[in-house]
Design a binder for these strands. Structure first.
Length: 451
RNA sequence: GUGGGCGUAGCUCAGUUGGUUAGAGCGCCAGGUUGUGGUCCUGGAGGUCGGGGGUUCGAGACCCCUCGCUCACCCCA
């Protein structure tokens, strides 16, 4: 337990995301929302905790995430609850509960909790962006979902990205395959790494995913799911590949790809960022889960989705110098050296007029207030001192562009600020040859300027 | 859960084989300029040396415990 005399801090494995870093998060979520909403996905908020069985049944008792990493607790009524370790199960639970018309397409942004030892790109609370689409098993939907993930990731500026694609088969073909794989592994048991020699019976697929050289070698000639797909699964996989190729989404088929949750059927995929260390280079992944709705107590309904880790994605962006977001600048900073009531009134008027305005407090000196104005990144300082008070004017001073100070009537400040800021933005754009976008990718739109 | 590295001002760090009032740069505040930011100069504030115990005449330095951070394994976003 932590020392009670020490100041409290964020729990192990969690992070505070404060401004200006948070501005990047905000921009990332906004971009994701815009993209998936344009494709017909609607926002779904579901509780941050669920009945424990939602995850036990949904994700699978055998998975590490449920078996040893889930935050479980009893509430005061003795109910067993768990903090969500991932995003899909709760959304599927909500689908079963509310029976929305299909196809039902939802997106989410949510924290996810896993009780593991933190390290680079791995936290006890991390955040995911994701989509889920339920109600059709059409392979075109697989293509849509994968393409949306791809377009989003490349859209934020990631270039060094790899998409791995695989098929897990379905209840028709997978059991026979698992038997064949088990039979094979039994003959090679002595060659496997210690851990997998133990675990191979319970979870033979994991062995294929093992990074150790022994396991790699021992499984080089192991039977592969792709060779054991039933006709329906094979046809489905072919259509997914054809679709991705048609949309020019590059991928590699990886027949060792095994994802951590039990619910996957048929298409599974994973995006890795080669700019990150291999240990945590998975920035997102997902797949089809045609049996999950039924497991959750609903009518058999196919579905597919993906989740993207925000922290990892931003880490990958850092490694590639991508998605550099500049927080929006204030339009005006009011400098009041006559006691503060003018700042109080003017900032409010500017804000009510839709402008971004701030001020200093505590009646600081003009020098200090101008310094604060400069630091705030505001385009303009709106100065009111004794002189202005007697003439009923305010002085507008450009902080980031050339131009003389001008006096404007106090009653016209909103309009004058708007004009002066537009002019300053215009002249900066002219100099840079860019529309005021200080971010890396230059296509962030200036939605505020067009009013 | 297992193993390695590391905890000194808000931040990045220095601190000689244990020796007196613990330093720097940046940042912050103020003054130079009693009406003008971004440069410059001067000054100032700010430290339970992560916490607890021990060794010693003396500990930021050494030992033990503990908390935290970090990296790797496992697994995953």
């Amino acid at each position: 337990m932590a020392d009670e005399t020490q100041p409290a801090r964020a729990p192990t494995g969690t992070r505070d995301v404060l401004f200006p870093e948070s501005a990047r998060w905000e921009a990332l979520v906004a971009r994701f929302a815009a993209q998936v909403e344009a494709a017909g996905y609607g926002l779904a908020h579901t509780p941050i905790f669920e009945e424990t069985r939602v995850f036990r049944r949904g994700i699978g008792e055998g998975s590490d995430v449920v078996g040893k990493e889930m935050y479980e607790f009893e509430d005061r009524g003795g109910r067993s609850l768990a903090l969500r370790p991932e995003g899909t199960a709760p959304v599927v639970r909500a689908f079963v509960q509310h029976r929305p018309p299909v196809p039902w397409k939802a997106w989410y942004v949510t924290p996810a909790f896993r009780s593991e030892r933190p390290q680079a790109g791995r936290y006890r609370q991390h955040h995911q962006l994701g989509i889920e689409a339920l109600g059709t098993g059409d392979a075109d939907l697989d293509v849509e979902v994968v393409a949306l993930a791809h377009d989003f990731l490349t859209g934020v500026g990631l270039a060094h990205l790899e998409l791995k694609l695989h098929s897990m088969g379905d209840p028709t073909c997978r059991p026979a395959y698992l038997d064949a794989l088990r039979d094979y592994l039994r003959t090679r048991r002595g060659e496997l790494c210690a851990e997998h020699a133990e675990r191979m019976e319970a979870n033979p697929l994991r062995v294929l995913d093992c990074k150790r050289a022994e396991c790699r070698a021992a499984t080089a000639t192991a039977p592969r799911m792709l060779d054991h797909l039933c006709e329906a699964c094979r046809d489905h996989f072919d259509r997914v590949r054809d679709g991705l190729s048609a949309l020019e989404v590059p991928f590699v088929v990886d027949d060792r790809l095994v994802r951590g949750f039990d619910y996957y059927t048929r298409t599974t995929f994973e995006f890795t960022a080669s700019s990150l260390d291999a240990a945590q280079n998975g920035v997102g992944g997902g797949g089809r889960y045609d049996g999950l709705v039924e497991v959750m107590g609903g009518q058999p309904t196919p579905g597919i989705g993906f989740g993207i880790g925000i922290e990892r994605l931003l880490l990958a962006c850092d490694a590639e110098d991508a998605f550099d977001v500049a927080p929006p600048a204030h339009d005006a900073f009011v400098v009041d050296v006559v006691g503060g009531h003018v700042a109080r009134d003017l900032t409010t008027r500017l804000r009510r007029a839709g402008l971004r305005a701030d001020r200093a407090f505590d009646q600081r000196s003009m020098k200090a207030q101008l310094k604060a104005a400069d630091r705030s990144g505001a385009w303009l300082a709106v100065i009111v001192g004794p002189d202005e008070l007697t003439t009923g004017e305010a002085t507008l001073r450009q902080l980031r562009a050339r131009g003389d100070q001008v006096a404007v009537a106090l009653g016209d400040v909103e309009l004058a600020v708007r004009r002066a800021v537009d002019a300053a933005r215009g002249s900066e754009a002219g100099r840079d040859g860019k529309a005021g976008a200080r971010g890396a990718d230059g296509d962030e739109d200036d939605e505020e300027e067009t009013r």
